[in-house]
Design a protein around this nucleic acid. Structure first.
Lengths: 148, 148
DNA sequence: TCATATTGGTGCGATATCGCACTATTATTG
DNA sequence: CAATAATAGTGCGATATCGCACCAATATGA
């Protein structure tokens, strides 16, 4: 592997880390104190992908350690945004359901975040953003595969 | 702004967050305990961009809060990887210099990380990775501008 | 079927992250 | 030039992150 390649990937991951940092900071400035992007993302996932996921499925969806997901879910539950039930298929496991309060919070959060996204969309044409997705998904896919 | 655009950017930032998470986990598994990617990145910056930066310049380079950088630098200093001097230009300020030990650690870290990067480069052609950079840089630039 | 391995989830402890407030210094401006 | 504002850095406290170890439950396989 040429040195150039090493530098290229370092630069790529660095750029990605900076964007993650910036976007998280921008979005969290709009969320009420004590609620993070991670909370919002989980609610979003429950609505857009599927409700009634297990904590482990959620952790995998975001590629986070399961202890981190436990912590995030505890926060959501404390706010009454989710409800956790025993998984009838597997007594070790639980199922996470979004509550009405959770849905309301999610919708409110989307309204709060939309203006920022609109501003970003003015500066970065959505076509440019969309053009990045396939490459990023490929990269994610392969990194994901490496872990196992 | 159409709803589609909102969803697109949420998806984009989510994908970026996942890649950040995966890459950090992969790399930190190779670093000695107590040293994180953030430490490595700062040393890398001192070597590749410029030595003798101020803490604030470093924080801005990585778009991190300055308290976070203070913490990272404290860790690097404790390991003897950097040395901090008074900035003769400005008595409020400091200058951060990498030490020989820091350089050695950085080189060792690169050797540890290279095999992983090589594996990634096998799965994701460097041309693909390189093709992502301009779009990501554009996105970063604009997010950066929004903050101020 | 029983022993063993694997899996889902959590408690705990260490530490990374980061906002707030503060000091020291430098810049601004009336 | 004095008063005020802005800036660089850090201490502190709250909390997010996450590895390790553990328990309960399920899967495996001799």
């Amino acid at each position: 592997m040429p040195d150039k390649t090493l530098g290229l990937f370092f630069e790529l991951f660095n750029e990605i880390a900076i964007i993650e940092q910036l976007s998280r900071t921008i979005f969290e400035a709009r969320l009420p104190k004590g609620l993070m992007v991670s909370h919002f993302s989980v609610l979003n996932h429950l609505v857009r992908v599927a409700d009634g996921r297990t904590p482990l499925q959620l952790a995998r969806a975001f590629q986070q350690p399961k202890t981190t997901m436990t912590h995030t879910l505890a926060g959501l539950e404390k706010h009454g945004f989710i409800r956790m039930e025993q998984n009838p298929e597997d007594k070790r496991s639980k199922l996470v359901f979004i509550t009405d309060e959770g849905r309301a919070f999610r919708e409110d959060a989307i309204e709060r975040l939309a203006p920022d996204v609109a501003r970003i969309a003015e500066l970065v044409p959505p076509e440019h953003a969309g053009a990045l997705l396939p490459g990023l998904q490929e990269l994610r896919q392969e990194l994901d595969g490496m872990r196992s």
